[in-house]
Structure formats: structure tokens, C-alpha cells
Design a protein around this nucleic acid. Structure first.
Lengths: 144, 144
DNA sequence: TCCAAATTTAGAATGATTATAAAATAAAAG
DNA sequence: CTTTTATTTTATAATCATTCTAAATTTGGA
């Protein structure tokens, strides 16, 4: 099952309707590498869905996060929430200068997540494994 | 060196003044288990520092985060940023119902953090290793 | 004691996110 | 294919955490 389907299935299983807007948002989330914010999703879908409302984007994100199929990573130094449809255990790196978020392959996260699942006693909904700092590119820039 | 000193030293080393307000904020951060928000710090210090301003709390937190001695964990389902003065590698657990954040002992986080430090190429400033869900207490409550 | 720089403060401004209510749409039933 | 009803979208207003601003205060050093 590809990632878009994971999201759309989750909606359906809750008896929620898979509207064109929701489908577009799921697809964008599933295929984007960007860890987008609500605003980014809105701007990227606007051309194809001129009637799309920012409220719908926030609403859909909220649903997906509460279903546990999208992770809310929080801010990357830009005071805006970034979202991640990749719920496979992995590490996120946020640059506090350019505010980009990328994935880092890791040997240890999976074991960590299993440990948390096994020992916490929490009914887990999502993960936020993110380190923030200055990315290699921004370290080189004449910071001006 | 105890945790309060870690914070105050960091301020001093940047040539910043250790005012009574800043000291109080550092002490509270260093000794609290709560992963407090700006508002929580403000309310807890108000009795002893009636003139304390919320702006000062935000300002001080911002400085400490940028010095890398306090981690910004993000929201615990309450849309407010929680802060953590414990920068030793550890896992945080946030309950999206009661909005409390606690620490979880972990075998694997230290290795994870070392891996990120070694392989990312980032100049790291802070960590946000947090899993969110429903805590054991809240799982039992008649959710009402 | 006096000065210059840093800090605090109160309050206003910003801006992300949420709430609201009306209009549009979708599924279900006939 | 219509009607019905619940869901969803939309635009907009409202909320509220956080940041900004400028004046007043405090600090440490000369």
C-alpha cells in the first residue's frame, strides 16, 4: 500500500468522505519530501484548486494527525508547524536558518520507537524525532 | 555543575547579564520536572516577582534556546511550546489529553544522538525527541 | 556618582490557527 | 433521477500565543 493510500484509507475507515480537496492534500503530503506547513500545502494546491480554503487544509491536517497517519513535527525555527506523512521511524533535521526539514537515515530510531511503544504505557499517536541546528549549506553562507 | 549553573554560565559566557529575573527563570527551568511553557513559568514566578513581564520570560527562553542549553519541544496538543532544560539525551512523552510532558528512560537515545551528531553535517543546537499520545491516567478517565 | 549599554516592562501589533455560519456537495433512499 | 439529510467546504471573523516597540529601569564600569 503506497503512502497516499495509507492516508485515504485512514479517512475512509473513520467513515469520513474522501473529497477532492482531501485527496489532493493527502497526495501532496504523501509525495512531498518537504515536510510542508499548512500554508505551503495551500499555496501548492491553489493553482489546481482555486477554491481551496486554508481552513480546509488545517481541518484535514488536524484529522490526519488525530488518526495518527501524519506526524506534527512542530516549528523549524519559523514558528509554523511542519507536517510529515512518513510515519516510519526516522530522524528529522530542521535548519533554523533556511527552515527546511529533511530526513536522516538512522540505525537507531526503530529500536527507540519500539522501546517507547513497549515501555511507555501510552497509547501512542505520533512521533516527533527532530534535531535542529544549522544545515551544511547555511553554515557556509555569508550570513549577511 | 548543576543544571542551574549550566544555564547561568551560558548566559555569562555570552556577556549577557544575569539579572534577578533571568536567574529566577533559569532556576525554575533547571529544577522543574514539568517541561513548562512560558505562561507556566510566568505564573509560577509572579508571586515572588510581581513586576515580572511575560515578555521577559519569552525573551529569556529565546536566548536560552539559541544558546542550546534549553530545548524547545513544541506543543503537547495544547498549541503552546513546552521547554526542557534537560539537554541530556532522553525521550519525552506528551499526553494530548492532559497536556503533561514527562521523561522516559531509554537505552537507545544516546546512541541516536551520537549518530545524528556524527552523520548529519549540521551544527546541532537542540533535540526534540518526543512521542505523543494518551497517558495511562487519561486512558482510564471516563473521557466525557 | 555618573554614564553608556543592556534589560525590563506594558502594551500594541503580528500572524498562525481555530471557530462560525452559510453555501455547496455527497451519499442514501425512494 | 429527485429528495432528503448529513457532511464538508468556504470565507470570514475571532482567538490567542508570541513578537515587537518605545519608554523607563537597572546594571556594571569609569
Amino acid at each position: 500500500m503506497d503512502r497516499t493510500e495509507t492516508l485515504t484509507q485512514a479517512l475512509r475507515q473513520k467513515g469520513l468522505r474522501l473529497t477532492p480537496q482531501r485527496l489532493a492534500i493527502c497526495r501532496l503530503l504523501a509525495t512531498s519530501e518537504q515536510h510542508p506547513t499548512a500554508q505551503m500545502i495551500y499555496e501548492q494546491l491553489r493553482p489546481q484548486y482555486p477554491s481551496l480554503s486554508l481552513a480546509t487544509v488545517y481541518n484535514t491536517l488536524d484529522i490526519l494527525v488525530n488518526l495518527g497517519v501524519v506526524n506534527a513535527l512542530g516549528s523549524a525555527g519559523d514558528d509554523v508547524v511542519h507536517y510529515d506523512a512518513d510515519t516510519d521511524p526516522h530522524v528529522n533535521l530542521a535548519c533554523t536558518v533556511c527552515h527546511r526539514v529533511i530526513d536522516l537515515p538512522s540505525q537507531h530510531v526503530r529500536a527507540l520507537e519500539e522501546e517507547v511503544t513497549a515501555t511507555s504505557g501510552y497509547r501512542l499517536l505520533g512521533a516527533r524525532v527532530l534535531y535542529y541546528g544549522i544545515c551544511p549549506d547555511c553554515q557556509q553562507q555569508p550570513e549577511e
